[in-house]
Design a protein around this nucleic acid. Structure first.
Length: 280
DNA sequence: AAGGGCTACAACCGCCACCTT
DNA sequence: TAAGGTGGCGGTTGTAGCCCT
């Protein structure tokens, strides 16, 4: 939160003052009344017409994140938490897309929740697993900052990896929790035992097909229950869970997957830009 | 009671995409 | 085509309020 301040902005013939910082109840009430009676329009007009000394952007943010009548208030339910974690494992930091799938929640809210709560939880988990599995590793083993060239968060990978493991998609007898030392160099075994196929999406990249994807890509030939060796690419940029930067526009997740349906199925599924290598 | 540390979250900033002129 | 305006988004900051000592 910020101290209220008044910034002078030079206008054509006069000096208009735009206020910054916390919104007062009076300002909230003005904006609320204006929005209810006029609806959403050009935000800079909203600021002017509602008699607010705020920039349009500030009005927009206040309305979307705080005043909107359809907002849900209060703590996230365990179900919402679960959804956020699952959506994040698929969408990365696309907060607005995650928020669009959680009615009544805003991207800002979810982002804050993730950064203040879930991230810490994952960090704790990764710290614990590093202690257990990597007692002889280098002092930097849990330091994600050493991978500063990538937007990939090591903690996120750990979280996703553990999620894979918890749900039985990673052969427990063949793999350990990865560390920064071995995550990108050690092949890990991914189960294919749920009744769908790994589906090649583009040149060396494989997704896990839940069967919801239709006939877009030919499935690999494989037997029910096979284990596949998934060799995670050495290049951090290629395993960026934040986006589909390595996947051609036409093949990106949004176009291929019905996320809403996906999230309602009993079969969890994930899509990483990992460079999977088939090892039958 | 005081004050220091920590957390949650409201709000700002900078960038980008899109639209209009 | 370029320039300017606007909206949307993710990252980041700063502080109110809580907790602990």
């Amino acid at each position: 939160m910020r101290k209220p301040e008044v910034a002078a902005v030079a206008a054509t013939h006069q000096v208009q003052k735009t206020k910054k910082g916390l919104w007062s109840p009076e300002e909230d009430s003005k904006l609320m009344q204006y929005m209810i009676s006029n609806g959403q329009g050009c935000w800079s007009d909203v600021a002017k017409n509602a008699g607010l000394q705020r920039c349009g952007k500030s009005c927009r943010l206040r309305w979307i994140n705080y005043l909107r009548p359809d907002l849900k208030r209060g703590a996230f339910s365990p179900h919402e938490e679960d959804l956020i974690i699952r959506f994040h494992s698929i969408l990365g930091n696309r907060w607005s897309q995650i928020a669009a799938r959680l009615p009544g929640r805003t991207d800002n809210e979810i982002k804050n929740f993730w950064n203040s709560t879930i991230k810490k939880r994952l960090k704790k988990m990764s710290d614990t697993s590093n202690l257990v599995n990597n007692s002889s590793s280098s002092p930097n083993a849990s330091d994600s900052s050493s991978n500063s060239s990538s937007s990939l968060e090591f903690k996120d990978i750990i979280g996703s990896f553990m999620s894979f493991q918890e749900q039985g998609f990673i052969n427990p007898s063949l793999t350990n929790i990865p560390t920064t030392n071995n995550l990108f160099t050690t092949p890990h075994m991914f189960s294919h035992s749920f009744n769908e196929d790994f589906t090649p999406c583009v040149d060396g990249l494989y997704g896990v097909n839940t069967g919801l994807q239709g006939e877009l890509y030919p499935p690999l030939e494989c037997e029910e229950g096979d284990w596949y060796k998934a060799e995670i690419n050495n290049h951090l940029d290629d395993v960026n869970t934040n986006g589909a930067g390595n996947v051609p526009e036409s093949m990106r997740m949004e176009e291929c997957w019905d996320l809403d349906q996906l999230m309602n199925t009993e079969v969890p599924s994930f899509y990483f830009n990992f460079n999977f290598k088939q090892n039958i």
